[in-house]
Amino acid sequence: MGAIYILWLRELKRYVRSRVQVVVSLGQPCLYLLALGFGFGPVFQQAGHGSYLQFMAPGVIGMTVLFSSVFSGIAMLWDRQFGFLKETLVAPVPRLHIMIGRTLGGATVASIQGLLILIICLIAGFRPHSWTVLPQAIAFILMVAIVFSALGTAIGSVLQDMQGFQLIMNFLVMPVFFLSGALYPLNNLPRIMTIITRLDPLTYGVDGLRGSLIQSWRFNPALDFTVLAIVAALFLSLGAYLFSKIEV
């Protein structure tokens, strides 16, 4: 248990200490809020969908958590390069504990980022349906964070260099983001697209967030939660397996 805690704490310390990174990683979602919010806002309203800020805020929160989670897993690449990874790999604790400590640390950081963006959205004028929905929204933030931190750990365990990182960003993370309905409603898509969006775990996270916050459900909270829990279990197992096979 000590190992899980100390590695979780390490992720948190790194986050708190790298203030530049905090600002940078919050900057991107803010840019989306500003650029897309003001750019698409009028079009969205004319099409009869209501306020775009209300619609996209939960999506931008989901996006923040997605990026932050996957990044924290991929940060293992640096630990591999700078050698710290092997210090943890030879320690007399189950590798599973090491993996869980890192993953939970990443998930915690991603959740904090998500909450910060939620606060920024509130400042920008976003209003949830009622304040009592916040706990449920936070629960979805945590679920999304765990799902994608586990995926990040799995990816980080097999990545050897920066080229692989680019590949993952362009062919995995960005599609997961765009196909999740974070930025536009997923109604009336071609059938094949509908199927693809339903295979994207983030779809359920964004639906859970949007549903909780502005009462606009595509599925329902129970389904969203169940899917996220199953995917989390899958990714955690995959991450644990790949992490246990790391060689340096």
């Binding site: 190992a3 100390i6 310390k13 630990d79 210090e87 320690a91 007399p92 604790v93």
Partner: peptide, 20 residues
């Protein structure tokens, strides 16, 4: 194999925890 983003003491402490 050190964690350069932590202090010397923290590096030692982390090791001590990992090794019970």
């Amino acid at each position: 194999s050190l964690d350069s983003e932590q202090t010397a003491y923290e590096n030692m402490d982390l090791h001590g925890v990992l090794y019970h």
